[in-house]
Structure formats: C-alpha cells, structure tokens
C-alpha cells in the first residue's frame, strides 16, 4: 500500500508542472482534462508509488496540493 497520497485543488492548479518535476517517484502528471480556467491540471497517475515526501507541496506556487503521509 502507498505510504502517502495527495489531494490537488484542481480549480486552483495552473498546470505549471513544477510538482511533476519535483516528484521523486513519478507519481504526478498533467491530465488531459482542463479546469474552468483552461489549464491541464496535475493528477496522480501512479498513486501506489507516493511516499508522502511533500516535495510537490513545497514547490507548488499556487498552494494547491495537500500531502498526507501514513504515520
């Protein structure tokens, strides 16, 4: 089971891909659906690999990512 998971505020996400670059295990990628502003927002494509390191959260300029880690 995954050690962590993220919740993404898809309405706030601008699809800058900084979280995708920051993720050490390649969990995140941009989806093929756009939000109300027309941005392709980030989503988990390999949720099982998330380690809950919160790297994506730190680099997100729009603070759209909440990171959870199994304690």
């Amino acid at each position: 089971m995954a050690k962590g998971t993220v919740e993404i505020d898809t309405a706030r996400c601008k699809g800058c891909e900084l979280c995708v670059v920051a993720c050490p295990t390649g969990v995140l990628a941009l989806g093929k659906v756009v939000n109300a502003k027309g941005y392709y927002f980030a989503k988990m494509v390999k949720p099982g690999d998330c380690i809950g390191c919160a790297g994506c959260g730190y680099v997100c300029p729009d603070a759209c990512i909440t990171v959870y880690k199994q304690k």
Binding site: E7, D9, G57, V67
Partner: peptide
C-alpha cells in the same frame, strides 16, 4: 487510500 486521508496525516497543506 482513503485511510491515509485524515487530518492527522497531513504533512503539507496550503499555509493558513
């Protein structure tokens, strides 16, 4: 997955 999503497991969130 839903078992992880609990307030006590938050390690990063939008600053208050």
């Amino acid at each position: 997955m839903e078992t992880i999503i609990k307030p006590e497991n938050i390690v990063y969130g939008k600053p208050r």
